[in-house]
Each structure stands twice: as structure tokens, then as C-alpha cells.
Amino acid sequence: MIDRLADPTSASWYEASARARIDGLLDAGGFREFVGPEQRRMSPHLPLFDLPRAFDDGMVVGEGILDGRPVLVAAQEGRFMGGAFGEVHGAKLVGLLRAARQRKPAAVLILFDTGGVRLQEANAGETAIAEVMRAIAEVRALGVPVIGLIGGRAGAYGGGGLIAGTCSRLAVSESGRISVSGPEVIETNRGAEEFDSRDRALVWRTMGGKHRRLTGGADAFADDTVAAFRAAALNLIGRAPAFDLATLEAEQARLEQRLARFGDCREATEIWSRLGVNDPAAVPATTASAFDALLSGLGETTHDAR
């Protein structure tokens, strides 16, 4: 685990803690945390389950500077309770987004790392996710970009996947996964024939960063370094779509078209092939730079319909 980054340019985003990600993402020294760990605003519910609590409930929120411009930032700690939304965890993000409505920063950055709702606080977590989505819509309507960064261990699952889909822009790394139901959940409900969760190559083909980027589910692909995510965030802030009828109609058309074009596909490789990828089987093994080159040849994966 990396708590402090010796060399933020090469440090792995996947391995870094929530705090280390913020440290490396923002301009040095400028981060100010809201409701910091010293306030000990921990979950009031976990003791009931005899579970350990974290000082920040797995959510770090605050303000900082990104390339000279003020931003608000939230980071989930995927190793604490799988980064899941509990009452305090969710409320901190809600508060940050409400603050953004008034502060109008250059952007709000959400560093996702979550399995979804924390079951021990399920109703609070689920409601918080709804509040977050409403607050994001409001912030976006004011012209403030909300940028999601996804490359942590826990991915962006469950409600986290829905929040991600609400953001203006998403950057994802290869390890990043975006989905609603996790592979284990699908396997438990539908059997291993439907989804063999131990087939990790299948998991990544179906939900992983490359697939999401190729199909337009994410807008930028980042190498697994803190520096790459910083560059991706900077790039995305500059081209965030508005939140209005035109954007959502375009998204509607985009999603309808996806259904029509790929609705009969069972495998990601079939989709990639139809997108024009010559050697779909080789996609998982390609490096980030080769993948970028591949993307630039496929027009429709980049869009403003979000």
C-alpha cells in the first residue's frame, strides 16, 4: 500500500490509497480536507455489526488546485468496506456537490473506488446515491464539469456505476471496472453458465476499462499511474458536455444505436470487431499507447452524448 508517493509520476493509481491519489492528482500542497479524520465522524452503524470503523468512513472530500484552477474533489477508499456507500460516506459526497453548486469550481473530481451500497447501512447508502445523482445533475446544469476517475481495486459497481454514468466525463484505466451487478452477484443469481466470475479475463472483457472506453462508456483511457489520471482529468475538464435536453437526446440516440448494433452480441470481442477492431482477441494485451492509437482510428467511441 502506498500512503505517500515517492514518485507520483509512476505510482500506480490502482495501488494508491484514496489520499495518495488526491495528493498526486492535485497541485502539490493545496489540498484542504472537509470533515477531516480528526473530527472522527465515523459510521454510527458499523459498531452494531461489530465491525471496525474508519475516521473518514472511506470517503475523503475537500478542495484543492488542479493546474492552477480550484477544484473540489472526492475520493473513495476501496479497501475500507469495499469503498461502499454508507451514511457518512455518501453524505460527504452529497455535501461536496452541494457546495459545488454555490462555489462553482473549475470542476468536481470524483475518484471512484466502490462496490456499491454498504449492506450494513443499505437504505442510507441507496438514498445517498440518489441524492448524489440529483446533486450532480444540478452541478452540471450550472456548467460545472463533474469528472469521474475510475481505476481502483473495487471499480465502480452498483450505485457507483450509476453515479459514474451521471458524470460529465469519465476517465478509466485498464484495471478500472464499471458495472451495475458484479460478476459474483450475477453468478450467484444466474449460475456459472451465465457468468463464471472466476474467469477473470471474461470479467475484464465484459466490464473492464478497455471495453468501456471502446464502447463509449468512458471518455478517456489512462495508464495505471497517478500522473496519467491527472493528465486525463485536465483534458476532460476542457471538453465537458452541457447537461440539457440536447445532450440527453444525443445520449438516448447513442444508447439506442448501441442496442441496435450490438444487442445480439454475447462477447465483447464481437462488439469490438463490429466497431472495426481488426484483431479483437489482442485488445486485452495491448499497451496503453497502442490502445490509444487503436481508439483514434475508431471515431464513434468519442462523443458528447453523456
Partner: peptide, 18 residues
């Protein structure tokens, strides 16, 4: 004046120093 290190996860811990 203050530092925090580690994460509450299985086999791990977090430490707040003030």
C-alpha cells in the same frame, strides 16, 4: 500537527496522529 496513515482493511489498520 496531524497525520493519518494506513487503511482499515483486513490485516491492516489506520493510525491518526495528532
Amino acid at each position: 500537527s496531524q497525520a493519518i496513515t494506513g487503511v482499515v482493511a483486513s490485516g491492516n489498520l489506520e493510525i491518526l496522529l495528532e
